[in-house]
Simulated assay, not measured.
Amino acid sequence: MSEKDKFPMTLAIRELQAHNVSYTGHLFPYQEKGGTRHSSEQLGVDEHIVIKTLIMETEDKSPLIVLMHGDMQVSTKQLARELGVKTVSPCKPEVADRHSGYQVGGTSPFGTKRKMPVYMEKSIAELAQIYINGGKRGFLVSLSPQEVVRLLKPQYVTVGIAE
């Protein structure tokens, strides 16, 4: 049995494999409300390279994905300005689940149920490697941010603020 056979076969993993993305899976004990701090501690990596996948919406309820460093928050005011909309706010968990097809805490930007525009904090692209959700709680994949750019074609934004 190979390493990859031990990991959950999520829609995210299927998409990564379909596009020949080189990645490594990482399982860890999920903790409710643990967030990226918990996962970074479990995996022994800097929280800055653990990337959050956030499902947000504009004032007209149009959903979008924001990829942000684990140790930073999204300035929704700045994001709204950069997108040219009035407001951007996080979706309620049940709405986010419906858009993405994933459970909050296990949301991956890959293989989402609904195609949504992806916005990525620009400095993520400058990292050598990132850890991002693999589509299940307690499951991250590490890969090059360039693979994220290749697959998702995100628009770069500068909306991160220190926690």
Rank of each mutant, 00 (worst) to 15 (best):
G138C: 05
V104M: 07
L54A: 04
K77Y: 12
T76G: 11
D71N: 15
E3T: 10
V88Y: 10
G106A: 09
L151G: 02
I130H: 00
P63L: 14
H99L: 11
S40Y: 03
G34V: 04
I51E: 02
I13S: 12
N133W: 09
A96T: 12
K6Q: 14
L151K: 03
G34Q: 05
S108L: 05
M120G: 02
V66T: 06
S142A: 11
S144W: 07
M116C: 14
P117S: 09
Y119K: 02
P29C: 03
A128P: 00
S142W: 07
F110I: 10
T112C: 13
R150Y: 08
S40H: 02
G84W: 10
M72K: 15
M9L: 13
H19K: 09
V118Y: 03
H99M: 14
I161P: 04
G135S: 06
G34K: 06
E147R: 10
G135T: 09
G35Y: 04
P93S: 11
V88G: 07
M56I: 00
A162Y: 04
M56V: 08
Q17H: 03
V159C: 15
G135Q: 06
Q129W: 09
Q155S: 14
G106C: 08
V95E: 10
L140N: 09
Q155T: 15
E3N: 14
L54Y: 15
K77D: 14
G138A: 05
D46T: 06
N20S: 13
Q78I: 15
I161N: 11
H38D: 03
I49R: 01
K115S: 13
E163F: 14
G106R: 03
Y30P: 05
P109F: 05
D46I: 06
A125F: 03
A80N: 15
K113M: 07
T36K: 03
E147G: 02
K61M: 10
I13R: 12
G105S: 10
M1K: 09
I124G: 00
S39F: 01
E3F: 14
G105K: 07
P90R: 06
G84D: 09
A96M: 07
K92A: 12
L127E: 14
G101P: 00
L127R: 13
N20K: 12
K77G: 14
Q78C: 09
A18Y: 06
K92S: 04
S62W: 13
G70Y: 00
L83P: 01
T112V: 08
D5M: 14
V74Y: 04
K113W: 07
P145Y: 03
M116G: 05
G111H: 11
M1S: 13
L54R: 02
L79F: 09
D46Y: 01
S2G: 14
H19N: 15
Q155W: 05
V159R: 10
S39D: 00
P109N: 05
V88W: 08
H69K: 09
I49Y: 01
K136C: 03
F7A: 02
Q146K: 08
A80V: 13
K122F: 12
H26W: 14
V159G: 13
E126F: 14
R150Q: 01
V157L: 13
E82Q: 15
V159N: 11
